[in-house]
C-alpha cells in the first residue's frame, strides 16, 4: 500500500499506509489522525478535509471538479494554489510518498 505523509501545522509528520483506491481523507480518518474532519463522510460537500499538496506532486492527482473548486473557495484556512479536498484524492500506486500538509483549521 502506498505511504502517504501527513505534515501537521507544527511540522510533526505522520506516515500512513493507505490502500489503493481509498481516498486520502478516508485513510486519514480511519486511522484517526487529527487535522482532517470530513464531516460529510467523503461526499465532496463540506470542505473540511482541506489539504495542501506538496506543489511538485500536484500532477499525481486527479483533475479538480467544478464543485471541489467551488468548495475550496469556502475553506476555513486560506485557499492556496496547492489546495485540494482529500476526499477527492483516490490513492494510486504512483502516489507513494505523497506529502499532504494539513491546514491550521478545517472549521
Amino acid at each position: 500500500m502506498p505511504n502517504i505523509v501527513f505534515v501537521h501545522p507544527d511540522g510533526a509528520r505522520e506516515e500512513l499506509e493507505i490502500a489503493e483506491g481509498t481516498s486520502v481523507m478516508q485513510g486519514a480518518t480511519a486511522q484517526g489522525i487529527d487535522g482532517i474532519v470530513a464531516e460529510c463522510g467523503g461526499n465532496c460537500m463540506c470542505a473540511t478535509c482541506h489539504v495542501y499538496i506538496e506543489p511538485s506532486q500536484l500532477a499525481l492527482l486527479p483533475a479538480m471538479s467544478e464543485e471541489e473548486d467551488a468548495l475550496l473557495d469556502g475553506t476555513a484556512s486560506e485557499r492556496r494554489p496547492n489546495s485540494r479536498l482529500s476526499c477527492q484524492i483516490a490513492v494510486t500506486p504512483a502516489m507513494g510518498g505523497l506529502v499532504v500538509n494539513l491546514p491550521e483549521r478545517q472549521v
Binding site: C44, M45, S65, E66, L71
Partner: peptide, 10 residues
C-alpha cells in the same frame, strides 16, 4: 448539479 448546490449555500 453539485456546483449549483455549493453556490446556493453561499
Amino acid at each position: 448539479r453539485p456546483l449549483d448546490h455549493v453556490l446556493a449555500r453561499k
